[in-house]
Design a protein around this nucleic acid. Structure first.
Lengths: 333, 333
DNA sequence: TTGAAAGCGCTAACAT
DNA sequence: ATGTTAGCGCTTTCAA
């Protein structure tokens, strides 16, 4: 019985197949100029020895690890509850796996510095970074540009470094489409709950809302707009305040998967029946199937960011333009 | 201006500090027998050259990558929505980071085979695996044992391999405590919604429920027990069925963070006011602050599994016993 | 206390 | 079509 089934090296394969070690390497890499007979012998040896190539050795030699890091720099409370995260990670993981890349997870540790994620690349553990921050003027971006870290980011108001690409969901369009939809449905006085303005997502979303309001000849200040942290509690409180204003809103719009639940709870507790519209999630769909929703392509976002990063790592150049993903409005049932 | 700030090697440091490359290596490893003056020079050179050690090279030499993989083998729909995941990953990531380990994410790709996670270790990308499956008789376990993969798993009914350790939340205790609590509160006819029996979590949870029922002299069949997939819809339907039975239940208990919402929706739609009790989450706490809840130590589970795996990798031996984490009952507000 | 040298397992340039 | 050889950047004997 074999003691250990997994320490076979290309050398062992070479010995068993009676060829040179570099021939093994070539055969496994799919080089064309290898004899059919030799190839067969090599593959057989691989199977019997249960060979799996040592990715570390390959990485050292090739100077890349075929691994990418995904950094999720939210505040602690959001990180633990946002339904965005599992779906996004699944997208990243699937696309990376399909292309032979592994994924390193880089959560921020609230206790620590928070910039170690660049070291994942500098230490060659990862070839590039996917970073989901939505902060405006995030200091991380200067760092990434300065260190020349290949990365894909959500759209930013900063100049992109040479190895930075942009993929995002078009939040401005979301805001615009959502407001248009609600107005079309006959709603007159909208309440809008967004994250704080230091979030680019909230900023863009609001800009889109304003576009749609103006388009209909409505003054922006006719809408009740509240900016609150992306937590259940904050959204709840903001909604209560909006509902207390006169004239009272007849529809409320929220721009994150989490806050819409705070909105709904506040509406319920006030005993009102106001239409609420928010980002779709399995839970929202289940709890309030009748409500209109914004379907954000989170899985696709993860996949596209990943594909873009790998493309950039492969070609060595960043794409000419940003990629903007479209969300979809799911009308009231 | 430096073209690239991050390709410095120990050799470069050595040249700059005027010492041998191996001296640099020793100094950085914190070897005691290095002159104070030399150490100082080396550190200075590291700072000016912006040195970050190449983890790949070190991994090749040390034959370990100081990286661990976390594998999340749920069904697709659950993976995308389960609030368990972000919190668990945060726990893993924090503990790993604190100990100088990186974390590789291994989601299953529904399209693919699903056993590639063992290759993460065989290819030396990871030193060990954290695996969160809760399936009874999961075939993965035989595989992990056969391949001698160091891993930490949730408690299983299988014999553990030499390098397998167990850390789990005590689901039996949860079931027992929850039923006891509801009975103490004066509820007489419990409905219980769990995942399917092929889930060990559901199995143990039910066993605990039975313990508590018997303890009070109640027959198990007096409780309405429904086993449904861990999805919103399934829980909703199961709850409707339970509520239709006679005598009708006066409290319903659910054992996952997701299903409780299906239960609550069904109760709401039926226009009843039945107590529901489920696993705590920020959303549940926000939406129904008055309900009793089961507080599962998910973050701690992630941390403990990680600590256990690293301990095992360091010592080379698995711990003598399983670790069981306790959940806490949060009473009705 | 430090230097010299070997080698982890792989790829690739150069020979044959 | 295949063999030879030289490293990738680090840790770790073995000498001095």
């Amino acid at each position: 019985m074999k003691i250990s089934a997994s320490i076979a090296t290309t050398r062992d394969i070479a010995v068993m197949a009676g060829v040179n070690q570099s021939t093994v390497s070539r055969a496994l890499a799919g080089s064309s100029r290898i004899g059919a007979r030799t190839t067969k012998k090599i593959w057989k040896a691989c199977r019997t020895l249960n060979f799996v190539p040592n990715a570390i050795a390959r990485g050292l030699r090739e100077r890349r690890s075929r691994t990418l890091a995904v950094h999720i720099p939210f505040g602690a409370e959001t990180v633990l509850a946002d339904p965005f995260i599992p779906e996004f990670l699944a997208g990243v993981s699937q696309e990376a796996g399909r292309r032979g890349y592994a994924v390193i997870l880089s959560y921020p540790d609230p206790e620590r510095c928070g910039n170690e994620f660049v070291n994942l690349v500098k230490s060659r553990r990862a070839d590039g970074i996917i970073i989901t921050t939505s902060l405006r003027q995030d200091p991380r971006f200067a760092l990434l540009a300065r260190e020349r870290i290949p990365c894909v980011v959500a759209r930013q108001d900063v100049r992109l470094g040479a190895m930075m690409a942009c993929v995002d969901i078009d939040n401005r369009e979301i805001g615009c489409d959502a407001v248009r939809y609600l107005l079309t449905q006959g709603h007159q006085r909208l309440g809008i709950i967004t994250g704080k303005v230091d979030s680019l997502a909230a900023y863009d979303f609001l800009a889109g809302c304003r576009d749609a309001l103006r388009e209909r000849g409505l003054r922006v200040r006719d809408a009740r707009i509240k900016q609150a942290p992306v937590t259940f509690q904050a959204a709840y409180e903001a909604t209560r305040k909006i509902m207390a204003e006169r004239p009272a809103p007849d529809a409320i719009l929220a721009n994150t998967a989490l806050t819409i639940f705070g909105v709904l709870a506040a509406i319920r507790d006030a005993g009102k029946t106001i239409t609420a519209m928010g980002i779709d999630s399995p839970l929202l769909r289940g709890l309030y199937p009748e409500l209109p929703r914004i379907q954000s392509p989170i899985l696709e976002l993860g996949k596209t960011m990943t594909a873009t990063l790998i493309e950039m790592l492969t070609t060595g150049r960043r794409p000419e333009s940003e990629t903007m993903l479209r969300a979809r409005i799911v009308p009231r049932a």
